[in-house]
Amino acid sequence: MDEELEGGLVEDDFIIPPVKYEYLDHTADVQLHAWGNTLKEAFEQCGMAMFAYMTEMDYVQIKEVHTIEANADDLMGLLYHFLDELLFLFSVEPFLICKKLVITEFNTEEFRIVCKCYGEEFQIGKHPQGTEVKAITYSAMQIIDQPKDNKYEVFVIIDI
């Protein structure tokens, strides 16, 4: 067992995952493209891509952890609601800007996600202001889930 640090965090929580996302061209908005070794990782990366668009990640410290839950009727809905929950976490108390996301429950049959969100409260002055994300959209949303080719990718357009 790791030694518990401040805010219920353990040492492993401070390991930052590698970046597996990019931002694609879109006229008025921006398209997030994320991938991973599993679909779960692609989802996590997609969430982190969204946060990285709002500020510069180098300035964000992991100080607290919050847990969110998302439920939906289908896989696209699940991605949509997952991101919407993350956006909500940023928009209201605790105003959390996340550096790291770990999905602890990834149920693609009942379409349910439980995710641990590591980061700190967004503070103007400390965190450079990036672009505001207004909403998540279903527009041109794609989820590539091909275990045969070990290919897991998601595409989401966020409204900014």
Partner: peptide, 17 residues
């Protein structure tokens, strides 16, 4: 309630974009 929670801290702000 979700909309109200998001709206409350942002009232009187210009926004971005």
């Amino acid at each position: 309630l979700r909309a109200k929670k998001r709206g409350l801290p942002q009232l009187g702000t210009l926004g971005a974009g």
